[in-house]
Amino acid sequence: MKDLILGLVLLILAVAVLFLSSSFPNFVVRGERLPGPKFFPTILAIILICFSAYCILIGFMKFFKKPREPLEQKKESEKIHMVNVLSVILSVTFFVPVINFFGTVLGIILLGAALMTLLGIKWYQSFIYSSLLASLVYVIFQVLFKIPLAEGTLFSFLVR
């Protein structure tokens, strides 16, 4: 099943690359047509198509050999805790809007504490550690190296 998915993803990707690179201009120097911008992507796309064909083939063979896979009985250690994975992904995704609203320090404290709590830390410990983390980031980047961190719209009226 994994091989089938991989093969299909590669195929879609390769076709998209072929399509996009077909519009790249040719490259002519002193009347000679030389490998241009599309040369490399095209070759790579063709290679990927070969690999995807291989993967799809393997995938089908496995599929027919074992038409019915036994229902997987996973041990606790092998179970995937999708909530944890999603919460990490979401906290990265919403990092920018959050710090743009709350400011970098408060943003890291809030998001960090939330993430730590979700990962099984007691809530008051989460707040202590995420505050430490936020102050570390603030001291190193803003104070020491003068990298501008977002101030946040929430408190912008205080600055003006």
Binding site: V88, F95, V96, L115, L119, I121, L133, I147, P148
Partner: peptide
Amino acid sequence: LKAGIVLTSVVFFSIIGSYAMRNSF
């Protein structure tokens, strides 16, 4: 420290480290 704290710190340093290279969201 507990894994939750270590891993969360890694996540946030990764975010800041990516941003600070050229101040780009």
